[in-house]
Every structure is written in structure tokens, then in C-alpha cells.
Amino acid sequence: MDLSALRVEEVQNVINAMQKILECPICLELIKEPVSTKCDHIFCKFCMLKLLNQKKGPSQCPLCKNDITKRSLQESTRFSQLVEELLKIICAFQLDTGLEYANSYNFAKKENNSPEHLKDEVSIIQSMGYRNRAKRLLQSEPENPSLQETSLSVQLSNLGTVRTLRTKQRIQPQKTSVYIELGSDSSEDTVNKATYCSVGDQELLQITPQGTRDEISLDSAKKAACEFSETDVTNTEHHQPSNNDLNTTEKRAAERHPEKYQGSSVSNLHVEPCGTNTHASSLQHENSSLLLTKDRMNVEKAEFCNKSKQPGLARSQHNRWAGSKETCNDRRTPSTEKKVDLNADPLCERKEWNKQKLPCSENPRDTEDVPWITLNSSIQKVNEWFSRSDELLGSDDSHDGESESNAKVADVLDVLNEVDEYSGSSEKIDLLASDPHEALICKSERVHSKSVESNIEDKIFGKTYRKKASLPNLSHVTENLIIGAFVTEPQIIQERPLTNKLKRKRRPTSGL
């Protein structure tokens, strides 16, 4: 017993010596996670971090007073192994002897410093981030199933929210409404489509400006004509009531908005009720001829604005009016007729031209339509002016008669200019590109209106002035400009410049 007691005391002394060697000089306990400095002193990692955080910048070693920084600290694995072995020896000594260790306080702390507990403390002390800490805590505590279930439920809930957000973003663009038309193969669909197009076009005519009305009406008319041609002859009974509906809707729209509806009346003529396609083609032919005449008058307007600064050229074209007008009339009417003589009366030419125009518009179905009313009214106005011209010709002399006839021709041009508003800008460009020769010939008609105004002003003063002067240069210039014009009389060319000069002198006297 005595020997055993001596041996136990010796073992205890050895353990105490080893414990003092492996103590931390700051906390005076076994080193936890030993860290060595540049001066080869060993301290606990937790104690050194606490010391360095007390001051900004480098701190001093507690043993040798040298500078220490966080970067200079290094882990010493050898001392950590020695500490672990010492703890194992102490545990074995207690089991063999059955005696508690003399320094129970220190031993209890040593026992608490088992490797499992050290790992837990290291995970908390090290600044490795929240995710690494959570992982280490889960690994160190596998015995708690409640914690695992809560963490898994949190992760699953987070994943569910992310997935639901993604699915919502994908589903939202798919919620856009999609309209699908289910059509049938019955023959009544074509008639319904035609009526739908006509009503939609009328609404567009009321909303859209004048520049786009003609294009819309032309497209709708083409669509309706194609649909009529596709149907068989057996379905004509269905077409006639639908066309009557079209007429009623167009008349109502014309009564409500007459000014807006006139812009599309000329282009919509071939959508009118037709028994066969031949009647629609004839109407299209007549409309094309009318559009040609209207576009020519538009060309004359532009030329008149350009040549208004040259009064000499405008005056020299006075007698070329009849010849150029004959050529335009021959090209406007498709019928083959002989040219009228140069010395014939211009009023007779106008009456013949009106007689040619009237039969074209005397179809029984055309008179029933609303768009032809505008053309009939313009023709009636022309006839009224010609009836007035006959009365004026009986009273005035030959020279005054010529000037009045020219004035009436200008009035006719004004009437025809009203129809110019109905034609589109695209048709003007096509006419100029296809028929430049006709445009040059028809330019002379509009330029002549300037000389007509001068004659009217001469009649106000009650006299006409003449001068025997020749202007050969002007006649040559005008002959080169206009290709299809005829030779003019030299006496009238000489008379016109004198009248304008005298007018300039006598205007201030009349004002006084």
C-alpha cells in the first residue's frame, strides 16, 4: 500500500509539471487552440484576439514586449497534440486509482476541453461567416432531431417561395387574352364579311383624315369586289339584299356627314349593287376616265402658280386654248370622233363635250346612286353658264364675245376644280409618270385663266386698248415650251401688254 501511494504521488507531480508547461500565460489554463508568435511564445487563440482587439494597430507580447499583429500569429499543431495527450492521461489516472485529481477545478476545466467541445467553440470564435457556423452547429449536434426538422422546413419554405415567384413570372405573360375566330364554310359568310367591311370603312371615314380616306375606301372596294366574284351565280339572291343594306348604310352616312363622305364616293362606285361583274367593270372604266381629267386639272394648277410671274407667256397662250382643249377632250372620251376645226366657235365645242359626257352618266342604276348626284349638279351648273353665254354673245361685239367665252371657260374650270378634291395624291404621281406629254398640253388651259381676268378688268373701264407692237421672242419661247399647242394670231399678242400698262397708270386715278 505504501509503495502504491508513493507511485501515485509521483504520477500526480509529473502531471502537474506537464500542466504548468502547457498553461497559457494569460488565462493560466491549458492552452486552447495554441497560437505561436514571432517571438516563439505560445498563447491561446481566444486570449490573443481579445488582446489585439483592445487597441488599434499592433499590440505588445505580454512576455517579451514585442509587437504582435493578427497576421504574425501562427497555429502550432504540436502543442495541440500534447494537450490532447495530457487530458487522456489524466482521465486514465482517475480510472485506475479511483481518486480524484488534486486540482479539481483545473481538471474539471480540462475535462470540459474535450475535442468535441473544442470544435464547437472554434466554430463560434472564428469569423467564418453565418453559413459556415450553421453547418458546423448542425454537424456538432446530430442528436437534436427537432433542430434538423426546423432547419429543413425553413430551407424548403425558402425554396418554395423562390419557385413560386419564378412560376408566377412565367405564367403572367401567358394570361394575355387570345381571340380565335371559328369560321364556317357556308355561303352566307361572304355576304356577312362584305357588310362588315362596308360598315367598318364608314366608321374609318368618319375618323380618319382626308388623305387616308381614299386609300381605305379603295382597299375595301377591292375586297368586296373579290368576294362578289368568288361566289357562284346561284347565290345572287343572297347578294341582292346585302347590297341593298350597303346602299342604305352609305346613304345614311352621306346624310350625316356629306363633306366627309364625298371624298370616298368616287372610289367606292364599283361596290354599288350589281347584278353581274360586267356592270362593275364598266363603272370602273368610267371612274378611271374621270380621275384622269381631274388629275390633269391639278397639274394645271401647279403650272399656273409657276407661270404667274410671267405675264407675257400667259398672254401669248390665249389663242392656243381651243387647240389644246380639243386634244384633251379627244383623250378624255374613249369614243372615236373627228377633231373640230380651228376656226369653230369654242362654245360649240363645249356643248358637244357636254353631250358626250351626259350619255356616260345616263345609266338607270347610276342615277339612283348618291355619288353621281355631285356630277349631275356640276353638269347642270355648266349648262347654266353656257345659256348665259349665249345671251352675252348677242349683245357684245366679236372681240368682247371672245373674252366672255374665255371667262366662261374659266368658270367651267372652277367647277371642275371642285372635283379635284376627290382624287388622291398617289394617283397624281402615277398620271405624271405615265403621261407626261398630256400633262404639258393640259398646262396651257390653266395658264389661260390669267388672260381671262385681264379681259374682265378691261370691260370694267369700258374700253380695250391696242398697240401695234411685235414680240417675236415671246412667241418662239412659248412654242418651244408647249409641244401640242397651235400657232397664235400676232394681233392679239400685241394687244395684251398695252392693256396691263394702261391699267397700272389709271388705277390711282380711279381711286381718287
Rank of each mutant, 00 (worst) to 15 (best):
E116H: 09
H117M: 05
N53K: 10
G263V: 13
F93E: 00
R78V: 14
G129T: 11
E9P: 04
K55P: 03
S186R: 09
T69I: 04
I124W: 06
K110R: 02
K56D: 13
K56C: 02
L152Q: 09
D120E: 09
H41I: 00
G98L: 01
G183W: 11
R133A: 10
N132E: 06
Q54I: 01
S186T: 13
L51A: 05
Q139T: 01
L73I: 01
Q60N: 09
K70G: 13
D120N: 04
T161G: 09
K70V: 00
L6K: 02
N158S: 12
L22E: 00
L28Q: 14
D2T: 13
F79Y: 12
C47P: 00
A92F: 01
F107V: 02
R170C: 11
E121Q: 11
N53T: 03
I68C: 13
V35F: 01
F43P: 01
V83P: 07
H41S: 01
G57D: 14
D120R: 05
N268T: 13
V162I: 12
K175E: 03
T167C: 07
T77W: 15
E181R: 05
L22C: 03
G98C: 03
A108W: 02
R7Q: 08
E181V: 08
G160V: 05
P145K: 14
S184M: 04
S146V: 08
K55F: 15
N66L: 05
Q174V: 12
L156G: 06
Q174S: 12
E181Y: 04
R163A: 10
S140L: 05
I171N: 00
L28E: 02
K175M: 07
D67M: 13
I42L: 10
N158V: 05
I26G: 02
E188P: 12
E9G: 04
K175T: 10
I125G: 09
T69K: 02
S153M: 10
Q60M: 11
D120C: 01
T164Q: 03
K38L: 02
Q19C: 13
L152V: 05
N132A: 06
P142T: 11
A5E: 10
G160K: 03
T161E: 11
V191N: 04
K56L: 13
I15K: 00
V191W: 09
T161P: 14
S140M: 09
S151W: 12
K88F: 15
I31V: 10
M18K: 00
G183C: 02
C39D: 02
C44G: 08
S151Y: 10
R131P: 12
C47S: 01
Q172V: 13
A134L: 04
G129C: 10
N16C: 02
E29Q: 08
S76K: 03
R163G: 07
I171R: 09
F46E: 02
F93V: 04
T164E: 03
N66P: 00
K20T: 02
L63S: 03
F79K: 00
S146M: 13
L147K: 12
P58C: 10
I26N: 09
N132Y: 02
L28H: 08
R71V: 01
K55D: 15
I125K: 14
N103L: 13
S177K: 03
R163W: 11
Q126V: 09
L30H: 00
P173M: 13
M18V: 02
R166H: 06
N106A: 11
T97S: 02
E84T: 15
N103H: 01
M128N: 08
E29N: 04
E9A: 12
A92I: 00
S186W: 14
Y179V: 09
R163T: 08
P34Q: 03
A134T: 04
V122C: 01
I21R: 02
Q94T: 02
N53S: 11
D2E: 11
I68L: 12
C44T: 00
T150L: 07
L165R: 07
Q169P: 12
T77S: 10
L22A: 03
Q155M: 10
Q155D: 10
R163I: 14
N66S: 15
F46Q: 06
R131L: 12
E141K: 06
E121G: 06
G160P: 09
F46V: 00
L28T: 14
Q94N: 00
P145C: 03
I42R: 13
Q60D: 07
Q19L: 05
I15A: 00
P173L: 11
K88S: 14
Q81I: 05
A224V: 05
C44L: 01
M18A: 02
T97V: 04
K45Y: 07
S184Q: 12
